[in-house]
Every structure is written in structure tokens, then in C-alpha cells.
Amino acid sequence: MRYARPETPAEASRLLAAEPGLARVMAGGTDLLVQLKSGLVEPDLIVDIKHLPGAAMITREAGGFRIGAAVPNQALGEDRDLVAAWPGVVEAASLIGSTQVQGRATIAGNLCNASPAGDSVPALVAAGAVARVTGPNGERDVPVQQIPTGPGKTSLARGEFITSILLPARPARAADAYLRFIPRTEMDIAVCSAAVNLELDGKGVVARARVALGAVAATVLEVDVSAALVGTRLDDAALDKLAKAASAAAKPISDKRGTVEFRTHVVGVLARRAARIAYERAAR
């Protein structure tokens, strides 16, 4: 096993592409080191991207936020503007692991780990976040939902990696929220989760809504809820429709963390609760 600490994206991409064996990108390392410990992966090369220019920075861009791939999640919560604009994304990222893990883990890593239960991913999808991918052929921008393709699998090509994620600008009266279900209060992987992103018009009516569900399918599931929510003030009837739509869309499995029945029911509960939080935030 070798460890490399490139200083430019091009160098990182070159190293990844040139490795004949197994190469792994490392940002916070909180997933990678667990895999190393368990013997699940034995990479020949680890490429640490924390020292690339801008990797550890949150920058303002076109009214939105460009989050470097090595920004630890704890730093997201320390950026007041980001919290104000994307409270759901920040709370989702802040739920991953312990305070100690928060000091290392990144949303780019969470996305590339491609677990259907990754907490930040539903929130990023609902937010319409865009990943910037660097590779042998230069840069490309990819909507985040196109990155994971199945458990542990991504659409990234050989030599490609994410350098940053862009959260778009926010109009007035817009907010998001994320809720997950875990058996304890902390330290668990989501049994199921829901992210809701709402934009209201001047009268408090929902103008646009995006909902993404976690841990109820092989990848994060975006559910079209326009029919349920748009044009409503999120009354009980709208919330009921949302919960039903979320439960209906869910295609979970039974495993050590939950059953099909449990996940199907609870994901609807979470969607309803998250929508109410997002609405209250947006109407504020």
C-alpha cells in the first residue's frame, strides 16, 4: 500500500488513472479506514485530496456555496450563512457519526461512499446540489443524484474524483429539512430518512417542492411530490398525500436495521415531519 498527497487536481487524477492496482480517494477517511480495518478493501494506493487548492474551503459562488471536497462536516455548521440558506443539508451532514467523525467526514465522501443510507445525500439531492468532478478529461459538473449508482458503486470513471459540491442560491421563502430514523439518539446508521426542500410564494403557498428518501432503495430515491404539495399551504391533507407518496415510492429491504414494513411506514412519517419543519422555516 502506498499513500500519496497530491497538490493539484491534475496530479491527483493522474495518480488515480495510472494506478494498475486498486486506488482509493481519501478525504476525511471515516469510511475508508473502517473498510481497511475490516479487510473489506486493500487498496494499493490511497490518494489524499485534503491538500488540493480549495479542498478545505467553503466559497460563495453565484449566490450559492461551493463546498470543497475535504471540508469536514463540522465546518458546515460553523458557516452561519450556509446554515441559514441550507439548514436541511447542514443538519443532515451534522448527523453523520460522532463529534469526532464530524471533524473529518465530508459530504463529498458521503456521496462517493454510495451507501443508500448516507445522511447527507437525500438532503443534497433535494437541494439540487451539483458535484464538480475532475478527471483525466478535465472537469465536469454532475447533479449529485447521478453519482451513486448502487450500494458502494458510483458513476465516476477511472481517474475521476469530486473536488467540490455546489449548493445553489436560495430565493426568499425557501428552506429545507432532513430527518432520519435511528433506534438511538446518535451513532446509528439511518434506518430510513427523508429530505424536503420547499419554496413558497409570497402568500405562503408551496411553489416548488423536492423530496428525497434515504435507505428505502438501492440509491437515494427522489419522489415527485408536486401533485401533493404544490399549491397547498401544507395542510393535513397535503401532508397525508406526501406521507402516502413517500411510503408508496419506498422499495426497502429487511435487514438488521429494520424491516420492509417498518421502513415503508416510517419513511412516510419522516417525510411529513420534515415537510412541516421545512415549511415553518421557509415561512419565517
Binding site: 433506534p183 438511538r184 439518539t185 446518535e186 451513532m187 446509528d188 446508521i189 438488521k256 436495521r257
Partner: peptide, 8 residues
């Protein structure tokens, strides 16, 4: 300790 859930 991830899935054998002792109280935190």
C-alpha cells in the same frame, strides 16, 4: 458498536 447498540 455500530449495530450492537449500547446506550450513548
Amino acid at each position: 458498536f455500530l449495530d450492537y447498540r449500547i446506550p450513548v
